[in-house]
Write a protein that binds this DNA or RNA. Sequence first.
DNA 1: GTCTATAACTCGATAGAC
DNA 2: GTCTATCGAGTTATAGAC
Lengths: 213, 213
Amino acid sequence: MTATNKGDRATTTILEAAEQLFLEQGYHGTSMREIAQAAGYKSAAGLYSHFPDKEAILVALLDARDPYDTLLTILEALQATSGADFLGQLYRLLTGMLQQHSGFFRLVLLDLLEFNAAHVQVLISRFQGPLLEVVARVQGYPDINPHLPTLVLIRGMAALVIGTHMSSQVMPPAVLNQLDEAAWQGHLSHILLHGILRAPPTPPPRPANHRTE
Amino acid sequence: MTATNKGDRATTTILEAAEQLFLEQGYHGTSMREIAQAAGYKSAAGLYSHFPDKEAILVALLDARDPYDTLLTILEALQATSGADFLGQLYRLLTGMLQQHSGFFRLVLLDLLEFNAAHVQVLISRFQGPLLEVVARVQGYPDINPHLPTLVLIRGMAALVIGTHMSSQVMPPAVLNQLDEAAWQGHLSHILLHGILRAPPTPPPRPANHRTE
DNA sequence: GTCTATAACTCGATAGAC
DNA sequence: GTCTATCGAGTTATAGAC
């Protein structure tokens, strides 16, 4: 699945083994012997032909599972009729990707706790340029609140997306399943767009001037 | 600082030592020897007079650092003139507490990764009742959108609060410091209340009928 | 309760044969 | 590249003296 240019299949096998174990047991909770055995080796020595040490496996894993390229491709192709439409799609896209790559997100948390996000910082910095481009595109729409600073727009979106994902991991399944995924996305993106208050500050009952889609 | 009913000072000393090390090095990355030495013992054996094993230390630590009681007291005393006011205060309160108890939050993440949130689930379930009471209070205000299901209100608020905190841990300090804390809170709570779009869907330039606060 | 001593393993990493 | 064998240091946890 993870493309390696050469026939270096052993490396990806090791990474797949390490991924599963890291996610289940944590970084320090997983031994080189366990990784080796899960990858089909008889002892841990074989791993050192492919990686200099244990930490290098985590770094390679973070890099291999980084959904950066996929995300960038989709972002560039994204088209919308309004800021509301764009943000709605973006929210759905990001939460969907975070869910699909939840393993990667756990690896990020792992790096955050075990190495104080030392390795992820590199991945994030790579993302900064494209991110600003997307936000600039968002702010070009006339229905976006022009008084919101760019940074606030980014952090607000990021916070809701990350928080949505985190909450799904902590909420009891019984509660989470009271609404299906589409309903959750619809409601939460509504909050992102219109907030929690009633849409009109004081609703003046006037005939329809706004268009319905 | 952490109140223990008896003169059981040794226990709190151990917990303080364990807290610092767990947060710096992770759970499996911290040894009983290290905890013992940081707590003033000459060997790890002394710890076993107070805790049956290593995991018990983490559990006791999670329980000791749980800000539940503090939060509940503040929540009960919270007064507001409107839903917007209430939610604004609540957002400020929760983000502030999360920041103040960021150590506890890291312990939660640690439990999430190392034990699949097994221990935190207990703490969360304890919080469910009071949480519903607060939300019921929120929904009593007339300016809150009545079409938002209770669960959506909870998760939306939780997501933004958690996401705000998480983003502060990953964002480069240079970016984070471009706005001061009060400005961040103001903007982000504005998004929570009114969303990212312009306040009126399509601004009809009519004389003031809406009241300013 | 805290100590020394130690049991019984497991850790990451290396050496060298094949 | 993968193997066996192993080094040296680390691990959790216990036994028993004080």
